[in-house]
Design a protein around this nucleic acid. Sequence first.
DNA 1: CCAGAAATGCTCGAAGGGAGTATAATACAT
DNA 2: ATGTATTATACTCCCTTCGAGCATTTCTGG
Lengths: 297, 297
Amino acid sequence: MPIRAPVRGIVADLIAVLVAVSEGEPLVLTVRERRALPAGPLESGHRSLQTGLRAWVEAQTHHPLGYVEQLYTFADRDRTASAGQQVISISYLGLTRERAGDGTAGEWRGWYAFLPWEDHRAGMPAVIAGAIAPRLRAWAGAEAEWQRAVLTFGLEGQPWNEELVLQRYELLYEAGLVPECGAGDGVAGVPMLFDHRRILATAIARLRAKIKYRPVVFELMPESFTLLQLQRCVEAIAGRLVHKQNFRRLIEQQELVEETGEVTHGTGGRPAKLFRFRREVLAERAVAGTKLPLVRA
Amino acid sequence: MPIRAPVRGIVADLIAVLVAVSEGEPLVLTVRERRALPAGPLESGHRSLQTGLRAWVEAQTHHPLGYVEQLYTFADRDRTASAGQQVISISYLGLTRERAGDGTAGEWRGWYAFLPWEDHRAGMPAVIAGAIAPRLRAWAGAEAEWQRAVLTFGLEGQPWNEELVLQRYELLYEAGLVPECGAGDGVAGVPMLFDHRRILATAIARLRAKIKYRPVVFELMPESFTLLQLQRCVEAIAGRLVHKQNFRRLIEQQELVEETGEVTHGTGGRPAKLFRFRREVLAERAVAGTKLPLVRA
DNA sequence: CCAGAAATGCTCGAAGGGAGTATAATACAT
DNA sequence: ATGTATTATACTCCCTTCGAGCATTTCTGG
């Protein structure tokens, strides 16, 4: 391959989607009047991107960052900053157990303020039938486009798939229904600067997928918790309700938690046992599940 | 957040892990005497990283790139090129249906040449019991380190988990058993320049996970194929054997393929029906499976 | 014609998961 | 005190999925 001169004037940014769940609401840390995600320049001297981000976030929020995962790297031409400079944005998802206290530069905000059509805990949000569906209908030229809308938004009786967060945002973007695309008014949700709302959508999609096969929810929970609190946390992230008894069976049969021996009162009903996460499973579960029809060794 | 001056002299590279499967062997495109993955500088003027990489690869190999997915972005300090320049490497996984023909800058090479301990199709490779296990045993100080080796490599009767490709490579790296770490001789496998073998491991891990829940295998198959060819392709990627009858049941009940109406002869037994991938499922399967115990709407 | 090799069809049983019923233990209103 | 609302927790039922294997069919090559 020919070695060519690289692009000059590259700027690299780290963008963090920091997530916490408080009282059954999923929160994301925002800055700049709640219109942007926290971001900072890449600094040399960090051993890796991961540790660099962790150090930076912990310095900013004074709270430990439980879990960090790289999301995606964007370098679209329209991300170009000033003249001729190319901007590369490396985005991260971070889960934190507690909300940042004072001294934090940003504000925590419920993520469904930005993507209200993603919260199906109280049934399909009115904004879908009321605004999104008709405007997508009007936009869709070919039948294929409408079918795409039907599938991603669960219209016409199609099942709702909570993982398609990014696909839904991109569909709205293409249809000109979010202000970020530069084409007028948005159909729903608070917009953000640049493509931060898309990055948030990416993060939510990743997290919604991940809680199903890795015990990451616990990174968002306090040390001890009731099973209902855990369930509410999962529901907050997934944006939909969960069958209580089966959820408990799932958690318990996987031996993800152990009883602390204490109970809580004041929840309005029978006192609930308190549980804690069994950190041992992080090592045990290294041997995760397969899905291929293997033959015996 | 304080806006600080960004790192000066950033260089951004694209690194591609191009995969093909030919005659039941997984191949990866290499350059530089088969010691490196193809890489090129990020060029401005491309609409996005994805399209930039696709254009570059297709120009190089004269073959369409079926599927492209971003893998990971590395920017470790030790990736620093010359003086004070920070290198950011954005890696991609690309699946291609055909091997590149003439005019290609690189060479296709079986990926198990680089990671021989990953091929369990003929049982656990001798190199594990013969070289890896004893040398990890000698390296492991604390019991926890040995336990990690036992779990990731499936020692002492632990089940083999084919998805832990990256964890295994990193364990060998930490233990000083690969030449890339700068500590002498490697225990097995052809080394590569820089951290390219780690990137290859990342790609294999991602692909092994992905074939289980997305129909990406078909990106590696010719237009029409027999079910055994498809199975061999999956086995090549997964590095382990699959139960034939159950594999067919899985494929057929998911309606991933349809018969072409033709059959092949000369395979040594009863002629096999030829199938083709039903591209429609790419739209249908947008509604993928869940694992949360949901409540009825 | 016979052995070997694939392809394909079918069955059995264990495990997992969706959905609902039943019972227990608390807070709170009357 | 008593009843009701609310939450916690224990089971049951049933259907689907999936691992594992047997059996049969249809070709190739002596």
